[in-house]
């Protein structure tokens, strides 16, 4: 049986802990909102950029571009794995790593990885996977400039022929309670089937509009050289934001549960403390009563 003082100390420390987890919960909740707002802000650009790509690739004398070209057979695949740098976010990292691993096994081709986030990097190391590059220390809500090096690495892997297809493995933010690990194709781009494309929810699919032929300045190929890498960067950016929103939502949930557990523990400990205190009072009273009785009897004995 713990002493009263020990119990009081435990109550204080559990109370402090609950305050910390409660604060972390609030911080994560606000980061979820920021990441969500940022991903919604990408929509206007995504729609417009897709419209341009569809228009150019739909025109009669559309130029071919390496980023639009399928390679057969597929000999190697690159997966970009988005995880967090830090833990305390429930099963967030484990879920996406498991999904990516299962997907890679099913492919049957050699798979290389680009890891975004320390947790994913460490997991890939443990699996002895072929890690091409790793990025970490992204801000809680990354900006476009923070993720464009990731996209550039991936584009280079694709153009140099070291990967015939590129996939993004990230956690899609559904709502505060649900985050869905997904794997979607990034490259090659396929303008006639947007629904197969990564992050297609941010693009309204459109048929080539019946506008008279465009004038391309300086040339259609030059335009594609600008538009396609940007669009690819944009998709990586969107995936990073979705992953960030999911990470913070998962952490908010984990911190919420921790706060609840701490509160429950606090209730139990308070009960134990009250019992212990009552017991101490009772035994003290017994002592006094016993002492008084002994004194009384001693006096009568005379």
């Amino acid at each position: 049986m713990e002493t009263l003082r020990e119990i009081r100390r435990r109550i204080r420390s559990v109370g402090n802990l609950a305050q910390v987890t409660h604060a972390l919960e609030a911080v994560s909740a606000s980061k979820v909102q920021k990441a969500q707002a940022a991903v919604i802000q990408t929509r206007p650009y995504a729609h417009r950029a897709w419209e341009v790509i569809v228009n150019i690739s739909g025109s009669a004398d559309s130029p071919t571009h390496p980023l639009l070209t399928y390679r057969e057979p597929i000999q190697s695949v690159l997966v970009v794995l988005f995880t967090s740098d830090r833990g305390l976010c429930g099963a967030y990292n484990n879920n996406i790593i498991r999904v990516a691993e299962a997907y890679a096994k099913r492919l049957g081709t050699p798979v290389s990885y680009v890891a975004v986030g320390r947790r994913g990097r460490d997991a890939l190391w443990r699996m002895r996977a072929n890690l091409v590059a790793e990025f970490h220390n992204l801000p809680a809500v990354p900006g476009f400039m923070d993720v464009s090096p990731i996209a550039q690495t991936v584009i280079e892997e694709f153009l140099k022929g070291r990967a015939d297809q590129i996939f993004l493995a990230y956690t899609d933010f559904v709502n505060l309670l649900r985050q869905q690990p997904v794997i979607q194709r990034l490259l090659p781009l396929h303008p006639s089937s947007i629904e197969e494309q990564a992050l297609s929810e941010y693009v309204i699919d459109m048929k080539p509009v019946g506008v008279a032929e465009y004038i391309y300045e300086p040339s259609a190929r030059e335009i594609l050289n600008t538009v396609l890498p940007r669009f690819t960067e944009l998709q990586v950016y969107q995936a990073a934001l979705e992953a960030a929103a999911s990470e913070h939502a998962a952490r908010r949930m984990a911190m919420h549960n921790a706060t609840e557990n701490a509160d429950e523990l606090l209730r139990d400990l308070t009960l134990v403390r009250n019992k212990a205190r009552q017991k101490a009072i009772t035994s003290e009273l017994l002592d006094i009563a016993g002492g008084a009785e002994a004194l009384h009897q001693a006096q009568q004995g005379h």
Binding site: A212, Y214, I215, Y216, E217, I223
Partner: peptide, 12 residues
Amino acid sequence: GILPQHAPLITV
């Protein structure tokens, strides 16, 4: 310079 009724154009 772009005024209304410009021919369809995509430029870098």
